[in-house]
Amino acid sequence: MTHAGSADSDLSGVTRRSFLGTAAAVTGVAAVVTALKPLLEADFDPGDLGSVEQFLQKHYKEMTPLEMEEALARIRRQVRERFDIEPNLRDARSLVGVEFVYALNLSRCIGCRRCVHACVAENNQSRNPEIQYIRVLEIPKGTIDIERSDHHYDHETVPDPDHFYMPVQCHQCADPPCVKVCPVEATWQEDDGITVVDYDWCIGCRYCQAACPYWARRFNFAEPEIPKDQINPDMAYLSNRPRPKGVMEKCTYCLHRTREGRMPACLEVCPVGARKFGDVLDPDSEVTQILRKKRIYVLKEEASTLPRFFYYFDERRPQIREGDAATEGAAS
């Protein structure tokens, strides 16, 4: 071998050493190229790894109206290409002088999970892998400990007489730990109390997911899949437009609906009227009345994140409530 090598080098003027060096370098380059091969399978379509304009796009709060228009145009184009529909995409801005809250009647909820599925359809969540914003807990009667809840109950019919049901989604906290921990301010609380995510700004570190006491945030572990015929074309930048892989998402109280005077999808579908939604700054709103008159509580009050999502029970004897209301009226 050595002989052959030196004979070779005599002929070509290449020393054995430099030949070996070159061979090693070539092998090295080949190995690196092989290692990088999976990158060829990347889908460099816009929306996956992102285009140059998406890379240069500013944070939501820094965009001028013109830049926002350009971003919206880009997203519309992507939606057209991916889903063959023309989306009604807009930037539904936060309302001023409004504070949205949710109230959920635990006496009424029957655990049918219609809210879960209506939410998925409305908000264009990924069907594969499956993402759902609402989790309905089935809790045995006799406790309120959510650690004893069943998340995957599967009865023929609901409600099961020995259990009660507690849907949990983002509580839109007034002191949100998820916002505090985000290193790049990709998630923040808007004036009307809704915490949103800029899907084009999130770096996917999932610190917010670890910080949330209500397990309300979801991560796109893979490229979200939504069948073309199931896409909801009614979209806003900060809520239900299609998300890329590798970013967080969460319930936005359907801000593309609620900021335009409609009710959230989960509320509309509820067959028993367990869900109430509205502006707590409006003294005549239904939620304000509920907060005043019902026996309300918040989940994990000790986490002191000041949720804007309240649970309440119906009193057993409604006639007493009339009396209470009268006394309260007299006192005030």
Binding site: H59, K180, I203, G204
Partner: peptide
Amino acid sequence: VTVDLGRPDRFTHLFRRFNFPLSMLT
């Protein structure tokens, strides 16, 4: 930390909006 990121391509966002001192990650 980098391999844990969902969007490593966006790491420049750290220089453009840095949530210091609130976020312990910063």
